[in-house]
């Protein structure tokens, strides 16, 4: 399966999000670069609102991620609960 990735700015807001992604995606690998964190995963990567809320202890709207996103790869689907990146082939 091809790699999908999501790159986020390195800051306080993204720290729990990265933690949540790593919890929810066993194949996710973190690649730290100057001022940014790139998370690679095999074929599919999910960002779950509930996991982020559990870590931060506050309500989280996944659209907030717009502010800290740098780049991504893969097809995307966003709902109230999840952002999914995936390749179909």
């Amino acid at each position: 399966m091809s790699t999908v990735f999501l790159a986020l700015q390195t800051n306080e807001e993204t720290r729990p999000i990265i933690e949540a992604i790593l919890q929810d995606n066993p194949s996710a690998v973190v690649d730290e670069q100057p001022a940014m964190v790139k998370i690679n995963a095999d074929g599919r990567l999910v960002v779950r609102r509930q996991t982020i809320e559990e870590i931060t202890g506050r309500d989280y709207d996944l659209q907030e991620l717009q502010v800290n996103m740098i780049t991504m790869s893969g097809n995307l689907d966003q709902t109230d609960d999840e952002i999914t990146l995936f390749w179909k082939a």
């Binding site: 001022a35 717009q66 502010v67 996103m69 740098i70 780049t71 991504m72 995307l76």
Partner: peptide, 13 residues
């Protein structure tokens, strides 16, 4: 750059 790039993810999509 990062501020622009945060829009870029949407543009790519």
């Amino acid at each position: 750059g990062f501020s622009a790039q945060s829009d870029e993810a949407r543009h790519m999509t």
